[in-house]
C-alpha cells in the first residue's frame, strides 16, 4: 500500500514535477509519463478520478491548469490518496501564498521539500495541518542563517 510516483502535468502535457518512490529505470519512467499524459489529458471533467493502469491505479485531480497524477498500488485506498494530493496542494498554497504553476516551475525546490515532508517512501508521514509548515519554516530559517553566516564571514 503505497504511492509509486507523483507527476505534475500542465494542461499542455508538459511535466512540471516528478517524484518516484520506486526504482523504475529511466526508460520506463519516460514511457509511463508519456502514456499517462495521454490518458489523463483526454479525460473530461466530472469523470471519475480513479483509473486502472497496468497493475496499478492512477489517481488524478486537476487544480487550475495543473494535473496532479499519482500512481498507487492496487490495494491502496483511492480516495485518501486523492486527499493526500489535496493536502499537498493546500500546503503549497500556504507556503507559497496562493500557489500557481509558475511558482512550481521557478521554486521547484520548495515544492519538492514540501512533498518530502508529506510523503516519504510513498507513505504519508504526517497528516497534521501545521506540522509540515512548521518544519518548512524551520528549514527556511536554517537556510537564512547559513546565508547570513556567509555574509558575515
Amino acid at each position: 500500500m503505497a504511492i509509486r510516483y507523483i507527476i505534475l502535468l500542465s494542461r499542455q502535457g508538459k511535466v512540471r514535477l516528478t517524484k518516484w518512490y520506486t526504482a523504475i529505470p529511466q526508460k520506463d519512467r519516460l514511457k509511463i509519463i508519456r502514456e499517462l499524459t495521454a490518458i489523463v489529458l483526454s479525460r473530461r471533467a466530472k469523470m471519475c478520478n480513479v483509473l486502472e493502469y497496468k497493475d496499478s491505479k492512477l489517481i488524478y485531480r486537476r487544480y487550475a491548469s495543473l494535473f496532479f497524477v499519482a500512481g498507487i498500488d492496487n490495494n491502496d485506498n483511492e480516495l485518501l490518496s486523492l486527499e493526500i494530493i489535496h493536502r499537498y496542494v493546500e500546503q503549497m498554497d500556504k507556503s507559497y501564498g496562493n500557489v500557481c504553476e509558475l511558482d512550481i516551475i521557478y521554486d521547484f525546490e520548495r515544492a519538492l521539500s514540501i512533498l518530502d515532508q508529506l510523503i516519504v517512501n510513498g507513505e504519508i508521514i504526517e497528516s497534521s495541518k501545521t506540522s509540515v509548515l512548521k518544519t518548512m519554516a524551520q528549514q527556511q530559517q536554517l537556510e537564512t542563517t547559513d546565508e547570513l553566516d556567509d555574509y558575515f564571514a
Binding site: A23, I24, P25, Q26, L142, D146, E147
Partner: peptide, 18 residues
Amino acid sequence: IYSEKQIGYMAVSLFLSG
C-alpha cells in the same frame, strides 16, 4: 553548512536512481 548539505541531498535524490 546546512543549505549546502540540503542542496547536495536534493540533487542526489533527484539525479541518481536505482
